[in-house]
Amino acid sequence: MPDKSYQVVCTGLWVGEEQDWDQSTPSDEYYLVITTMVRDSKGVLAQKTVTVPGAGEFESMDTGDWKKFEVLCWDGPMNRFGTFTQLYESDEGQKKENRKLINDAATQVVQLGTGTIPEGLQKLSTDIFMKLLDLDDDMIDAQVTRVFNSAATEKLVNSPQKKSVPEGIPYRFRTDHWGGGGRVRMYYDIRPS
């Protein structure tokens, strides 16, 4: 009998507590990296990784704020599955701009002294300054959901969909993320493809 096909969908985010410290901005700017790992009945492992959300979608998140959305994390046959979710806070939402400024400054300084800078050394110096100045994005937390075998997946799919209170975000399972004094809850649904 072939494996059934399901969709795993990230359906929303709720901020229970904002982080204690957030660089120079008064709010948190979250994003997630979600990897869905599935195994079929023949033992073949597959995975799909998505980044949620698009740029700027979760800017200015404060305690009590929430977002309802749908991001497809998996669509296809599976016998069992699990998710690995990494929650990040984008420092000032300017990681790329900070990296470019440091890279340009390092290039100018080195060119004044030697005239050229090898590409590998330029990237290394930029990486070092980003770490020293703590300008990289901060990983708040990483969570692995328990692995749902075929019976548990079927039970989950056939269970009534829940709604978060008071946000009304539909879900069948969720993950809680704690770090930096903050607390964020992610919601997921699973349904037949």
Rank of each mutant, 00 (worst) to 15 (best):
Y171N: 08
P77I: 04
S193P: 00
D20T: 09
V33P: 02
D28T: 06
W66V: 13
R99S: 10
G168M: 05
T175N: 15
L101T: 03
T145R: 05
L132M: 15
I140M: 15
N158D: 05
D141R: 00
A152T: 02
V184I: 14
A151I: 08
K42Y: 06
L124H: 14
N103G: 12
P2C: 12
A55Q: 12
A55M: 03
I34H: 05
P192E: 12
Q19F: 00
Q161G: 06
Y30W: 14
R172S: 13
I140G: 00
K68L: 08
T175K: 06
T49L: 04
L124C: 04
K100A: 07
D3F: 01
N79P: 05
L87R: 04
T25V: 14
E154H: 06
E119L: 12
A46S: 15
D189N: 12
F58A: 05
I190P: 03
M37K: 11
D62G: 07
V38A: 15
D65H: 11
D137T: 02
L121D: 12
R191A: 11
Q86M: 12
V9W: 03
Y88A: 03
M130C: 10
V44Q: 15
S41F: 04
V52P: 01
G181C: 06
A152N: 04
G54H: 07
E154P: 00
V147K: 05
S150I: 01
D176F: 06
V147G: 05
L124D: 06
E97G: 02
F69Q: 01
V8K: 10
D20P: 02
Q47L: 13
M130Q: 10
N103Q: 13
S159W: 05
N79D: 14
T49G: 02
T35C: 09
M186R: 01
P53R: 07
E29N: 13
E89A: 11
G76W: 01
A105R: 01
G54K: 13
L72Y: 00
T145Y: 01
M37E: 10
Y6P: 01
F84D: 06
F173Q: 10
E92Q: 13
T25Q: 10
T11L: 11
A152E: 15
Q108C: 03
L87M: 04
L87W: 06
V71N: 10
G93Q: 02
N79Y: 09
T175Q: 14
Q19H: 01
L133S: 10
G56I: 02
K68R: 14
D20Q: 07
R39S: 11
M186G: 04
D176M: 13
T107K: 15
I190M: 09
D62E: 12
K95T: 07
K4T: 12
